[in-house]
Nucleic acid binder design. Structure first.
Lengths: 242, 242
DNA sequence: CGTGTGTTTGATCGCTTTCAAGTTCAGTGG
DNA sequence: CCACTGAACTTGAAAGCGATCAAACACACG
């Protein structure tokens, strides 16, 4: 690709012009020149649901911005038990800076579009740009807050509270202001029952039973397995334990 | 205190000269001038085991370095259930940058010595010192790794594996190279059975029973409640599920 | 129309919790 | 030094919740 086609008079690379992640994510912290050097080395990737992005103990040679879709981060025990330890949504940054080997596995939970770039390129930019490092610190702190919230759920909530908490988590991703108003909210679950179970530290059967319970109690309506209507978010919150 | 007594010819403030955290922690990233301005605003605090450092939803006006002891971070449910979501040891940095309200509670798990300084002072230094921000990013990434390890333990391990994992965690803090050699290792638990239970998402009775099981199996020896001798670290690791 | 995958439902089992004593330990005052 | 006291810990018995095993159901696809 020629420079003429790649770079606008404004200095913003063409592929970045229409990119949702440009303002929200990593790229929003870069000046035009830095953005250009990152864009030159980056490529858009489409992944089907279920595809593996990063393998456990695998050398990581790329970082990515999530442009759309949901990525799940998992850890496993030698005997096959699995736990999802994080969910990442657009426009999150994906990758573990300053560490060559990943201790976790990443999979596409839905169809996913990424903007990937080499580890080296980004690490060079980090050294140049305190704003970028500040952005990463903030995202990492947010992920840590989320992980700790989830530890409370995993360690101290019962099955019903776990499932209710999960539904609230997804509902809030769709509409962050879901609680105060008691409007109903509808969405499609980005994950299968097995994945939900791996997220909640439960089995599929238990997840299914708790969804049934919430359905019978009139808190939610379920259709086609994945489609959820939360009739009464406030009642769902009451069942989530907090 | 006069400057003459506070500052050495080298430029290193006197109280910092003998400080263990000076090289390992936040202060190691600062130049002499920055260290001096931080030292001027900081004060050493001794806290008894059980003291509250940061309350939930309380405005945080100070950050700290942990000079000695163990700090536990907890989250609770409205009905009183509690979960420990993190342990911090010297020379960790304590506090949640860029957020006025704490979402968690911090308590001294043992007697603790802190070096505290005002939020404002550190935030000013962060703006000046990319090295400091880099240090904080690294510590936060490490804490996130630890939190995710623990999510696997909370969600997918049974009671015996949880207790074994906890003992390994503490043993590794005492001696990081505890696994490869099969030497025995002895230490005092920094936490009560209730705290261990809150860490593992179990009850005190279950923690006690699993410790008894490990004792009967000859994996550990327990005396005076808190003192543990791990006779065979490798067998302990085998029982931890990974 | 059959096949396969994902989900629901049912019955039973087992682990962890709960409730209820005991026991050990550290601290205090005689 | 020892007896007393309260807190922390251990042990036991029973109950409950989620896991496991098994079967039925629903939907997509060839």
């Amino acid at each position: 690709m020629s420079e003429r086609k790649d770079v606008q008079p404004s200095g913003v690379p063409v592929p970045c012009l229409t990119c949702d992640a440009r303002s929200g994510g990593v790229c929003g912290t870069l000046d035009a020149e830095q953005l250009a050097s990152l864009a030159k080395a980056s490529s858009k990737k489409r992944l089907e649901s279920g595809a593996e992005l990063i393998g456990d103990a695998q050398t990581v040679e790329a970082y990515s911005n999530i442009l759309s879709g949901v990525v799940k981060l998992t850890k496993g025990l030698p005997d096959g038990r699995e736990q999802i330890v994080g969910l990442q949504f657009a426009p999150d940054f994906l990758g573990r800076p300053f560490q060559d080997e990943s201790a976790i596995t990443a999979h596409a939970a839905t169809n996913v579009v990424l903007c990937s770039f080499p580890k080296r390129t980004l690490e060079m930019l980090i050294k140049q740009s305190p704003r970028l490092e500040h952005f990463l610190l903030n995202q990492t702190l947010r992920e840590l807050d989320e992980a700790r919230d989830w530890m409370l759920t995993l360690g101290r909530k019962n099955a019903l509270e776990k499932v209710a908490s999960y539904l609230l988590l997804i509902a809030r991703y769709i509409d962050p202001a879901v609680d105060p108003d008691s409007q109903s909210i509808a969405f499609d679950l980005p994950m299968s029952r097995l994945e939900i179970a791996d997220f909640l530290g439960l089995t599929i059967e238990t997840v299914s039973r708790q969804l049934t319970k919430l359905r019978i109690d009139g808190v939610i309506a379920v259709s086609q397995n994945r489609h959820i209507v939360v009739a009464n978010p406030e009642r769902l919150r009451m069942r989530s334990g907090c």
